[in-house]
């Protein structure tokens, strides 16, 4: 099964190379083994031999990776390489997709993420998520932020909720912009503000990990810069995994970078190493812009 898909992967790859006219030699052995340092001593999230299937087709092959405490790990790679799929495994958002199956060991602070007994509700409160497109609820800004605390029963008194709203919005760097219009709909904000609102919404339930799935892909450069700054500030309190399309962004915000290729984790290293001296030729080919 696994080899067959690999063959298929190779075929697509060579076809793509022919199309672009650039020759990239890929051997099966090279793709299979992750190079660099995928493991960490202070692992918050541990993933071992993760395989993800959509029905019959396999999207993730044998990925093993640690994400350390208070660290920003960036996941990069060409589109369709499985980085978003992998990210969505970490808080089990893949459960919502019909026919999606996840195998392997995944744990948060040593507690398993998958398993019959694991309740996704508290898990997702611990592992928050920010999505590609800003998705504020069609409610007021205030209601957006208190949504999580309210459903989880973290706070119910108005004063407590007010405090949570202010704290979360401050941390998301949005407080000064919206403090006078908390009762206006969240959908009325600009794209960048909406995304920061979504980050505030995620912070409001005091998560330990924040997953970000290309959080800036729908934003303009100025809004992007603002979010990148924010990510750097958030690192103090949270562990962050970010999927990004932009190598510059990965280089700016992350401590470690993981390079995915066709469902395989090719290389994990310090961000600086990956961008200046990649170990794997596929990584090199990608960061030097030979495909992407």
């Amino acid at each position: 099964m696994s080899t067959m898909t690999l063959d298929a992967a190779e075929r697509t790859e060579s076809a793509r190379s022919e199309l672009t006219g650039k020759k990239v030699a890929v051997s099966q052995a090279e793709v299979r083994k992750t190079v660099g340092q995928p493991f960490s001593d202070t692992a918050k999230l541990r993933m071992r031999d993760v395989n993800v299937f959509y029905g019959e087709s396999q999207a993730i092959h044998n990925v093993s990776l640690d994400i350390g405490r208070n660290e920003v790990v960036a996941m990069i790679g060409p589109s369709g390489c499985g980085k978003s799929t992998f990210l969505r495994c970490l808080n089990r958002m893949n459960d919502t997709i019909e026919g999606c199956r996840v195998e392997g060991e995944l744990s948060l602070d040593g507690e398993p993420i998958y398993g019959a007994k694991v309740d996704v509700v508290p898990l997702r409160a611990r592992v928050g998520m920010v999505f590609q497109k800003p998705n504020p609820f069609p409610k007021t800004i205030y209601e957006n932020v208190v949504y999580g605390p309210k459903i989880h029963g973290i706070a119910s008194r108005r004063a407590d909720l007010d405090e949570i709203v202010e704290n979360s919005l401050r941390r998301a760097g949005l407080w000064n912009e919206v403090k006078d219009r908390l009762d206006k709909p969240g959908t009325g904000l600009s794209g960048g503000q909406q995304q920061r609102l979504c980050i505030a919404r995620a912070i409001a339930v005091s998560p330990e990990v924040i997953l970000m799935d290309e959080p800036c892909s729908a934003l303009d450069p100025i809004a992007t810069a603002r979010i990148e700054e924010l990510i750097d500030e958030l690192r103090e309190n949270y562990t962050i995994a970010i999927v990004t399309h932009s190598m510059q962004q990965a280089a700016r915000v992350s401590q470690r970078t993981a390079y995915f290729h066709l469902g395989h984790l090719v290389e994990v290293n310090d961000t600086e190493t990956v961008f200046t001296n990649p170990e794997h030729e596929l990584t090199e080919a990608y960061i030097t812009g030979r495909f992407g």
């Binding site: 509700v121 508290p122 989880h152 029963g153 973290i154 704290n167």
Partner: peptide, 22 residues
């Protein structure tokens, strides 16, 4: 900055879980 620690938050969430699942 928040008054509640993450552990406190965890506890409160756990407390409500059963009724939410009902």
């Amino acid at each position: 900055m928040t008054n509640l620690t993450q552990t406190q938050v965890r506890e409160r969430i756990e407390k409500n879980l059963a009724s939410r699942h009902r």
